[in-house]
Amino acid sequence: MVRVTKPWRVTRLRGDGSTRVRADILAGEEPLEVRLGGRPFNVTMRTPGHDFELVAGFLVSEGVVVDREQIRSMDYRAGIAAGGERDYNVVDVRLAEDVPLPDTYIERHVYTSSSCGVCGTASIETVRKTSQYAVSQDPLTVPLGVLLGLPDALRAEQSVFERTGGVHAAGLFVDGELVCLREDVGRHNAVDKVVGWALLEGRVPLTGTVLQVSGRASFELVQKAAMAGIPVLSAVSAPSALAVELGEELGLTVIGFNRGEMLNVYTRHDRVSGAGEERETGA
């Protein structure tokens, strides 16, 4: 049985030597195998829940699909678990007949940890994906005050984090309003769940949107945003150098250290309105 959370008894130790046994709630983490036409494609460690969105978003990130009509069906594998019940850790995807299988379909390693969204790729060349959407052309501008309010808006809706303190979150915002939030032990999974929701809702490409994430901005998250047509990625922590370089190349706005009072804009500063005149300071 898969669970979003799991209760566990823990022993709490204090510096004064006192102990206390209490109940704790842990974030669920289980493997999810993705199959294309019945054949293994990828295994990722994830927090159960919104699995079809996770799979759909992953397929967008991999460049396999760009439209919901390209996914003919998704379902959990049947008849494998005890008693012939569905196996909720295996999702089988049937693509439309005109959708080619990815080039790395045979070669792809089939394990991705919850901390890495590109670890399962078979070669360096397959890490980099090409988006069909020119995010550099997106005319979106976002007031500084709106951007600064996104972390608090995200945190207020993180129900699984509130119970466990152990998951990442990704939220999609339109005109400062949260339209979708997903949580997962893997930050890349949280983003894939948001993108998958958008694909299944027929909202991709996600022009005019901001993706706010609870952790750092990595190369993979910038790439996932670009693959979905998201022009602005904002993170509460630091971006990596490669993430910033990719954002610069693609014309995607990368924001880091957004913690409600100030933020750093690393690329495409023109998308942030309401800021004062730039002043050069020391490194």
Rank of each mutant, 00 (worst) to 15 (best):
R163L: 14
V60W: 12
V195R: 05
C119R: 04
C116I: 08
R182V: 04
V60F: 13
V146T: 09
G145M: 00
R163E: 11
G49Q: 13
A275L: 14
T281V: 15
V64S: 06
V65G: 06
V91H: 11
S73V: 00
R22V: 10
E85K: 09
C180D: 09
G57Y: 00
D184Y: 15
V127F: 15
P231N: 11
L26D: 06
V99E: 07
K6E: 15
V21F: 11
V4W: 15
A235I: 02
R39Q: 12
Y105A: 10
V135G: 03
V204N: 06
A243E: 12
G202K: 01
A198C: 10
G176C: 05
V60L: 11
V135P: 03
T130N: 05
V194S: 12
R22L: 14
A217H: 10
H50Q: 15
E97P: 01
G196A: 07
R9H: 13
L154G: 07
A153N: 02
G38S: 09
A134N: 13
V213D: 06
G38Q: 11
I80M: 07
Y105V: 05
G63C: 01
T19S: 12
T267S: 14
V142K: 01
V91G: 08
V210Q: 07
V191E: 02
A78W: 15
G28Q: 01
L150I: 03
R216E: 00
T47W: 00
A190C: 08
Q132M: 12
Q212P: 01
A241Q: 04
E97W: 10
D16V: 04
L242Y: 15
R268W: 09
E29W: 07
R68N: 02
S240L: 08
R108W: 08
P7L: 02
S218T: 07
V244H: 05
R128M: 04
R163M: 12
N189E: 14
T141N: 04
I80W: 14
E53Q: 14
E280C: 02
A217F: 13
R203F: 12
V64N: 05
V34H: 13
V265C: 07
R163S: 05
A153R: 01
V265M: 04
V222M: 09
A275D: 01
N42S: 12
V2N: 02
T281Y: 14
F52R: 02
P139H: 05
S218M: 06
G215V: 01
V110Q: 14
I230E: 10
S240V: 02
V135W: 09
L32S: 10
